[in-house]
Design a protein around this nucleic acid. Structure first.
Length: 202
DNA sequence: TTCACGATTCTA
DNA sequence: AGAATCGTGAAG
């Protein structure tokens, strides 16, 4: 879990990175407590050339990080109240990133991090993390898929349109792990999978 | 300085 | 389906 994704992983277009991030682990090191980690189960891609992207209109102090080098967190405030966490991708001077929309945290309620703002809240991520490197040395990073999830493929994911945007609906740039109950919102017709049975009856 | 709006969430 | 809630960016 200490091994982070290599920097080159993020130096690709967001729509390539986003689906590959599913199954990876978001990990946070905290003072005096065990590592906090969760499996990423839902992501969205965003890119400068389309209107749903924060960098579509102009480069400003608040979206500056999105235009920076890949491999950093871009954290923004949503609706004045919530925080949302992105990972910057592709290359510098081109707004491109992946929104981390949901994570499944072992041993915790299924939906504590089911949604971008809930994920940010549970991991205690706010604007102070903006522009910070995705790196174990900074205490917050992303680890590759663990062995048991290494076999994840397109067949395990649902690809659909993004959530909460008015423009850019035609792009199917949201991906989620179908087997997970920690997904923020399922595509139409996709039934919620059964809960995992963790304990055998006596 | 002011105003309208939003990559959301919670409740009914 | 609708409200809450406030940081931003564009307008004045």
């Amino acid at each position: 879990m200490g091994n982070p994704l290599p920097k080159a992983f993020f130096a690709r277009p967001a729509e390539l990175v986003a689906p590959e991030l599913i199954g990876c682990l978001l990990v946070k090191r905290q003072e005096g407590v065990a590592l906090l980690w969760g499996v990423l189960v839902e992501t969205e891609a965003n890119s400068q050339e389309e209107p749903a992207c924060h960098g579509y209109r102009r480069r400003t102090p608040s979206n500056e990080t999105l235009f920076g080098e890949p491999g950093r967190f871009y954290v923004y405030v949503s609706y004045g109240i919530h925080h949302c966490v992105n990972v910057v991708t592709h290359r510098a001077d081109w707004a491109n990133g992946v929104l981390l929309r949901a994570a499944a945290i072992p041993g915790e309620p299924e939906r504590v991090a089911a949604g971008p703002a809930l994920l940010a809240r549970r991991f205690g991520i706010d604007r102070s993390r903006d522009a910070q490197l995705v790196d174990p040395d900074r205490g917050l990073w992303i680890a590759p898929r663990p062995p048991e999830l290494a076999g994840l493929g397109a067949a395990d994911l649902t690809q659909t349109s993004r959530i909460g945007i008015s423009q850019g609906q035609e792009l199917s740039w949201r991906w989620y792990l179908r087997a997970s109950r920690s997904v923020s919102r399922r595509a139409r017709g996709d039934r919620q999978p059964p809960a995992l049975v963790t304990a055998a009856p006596p």
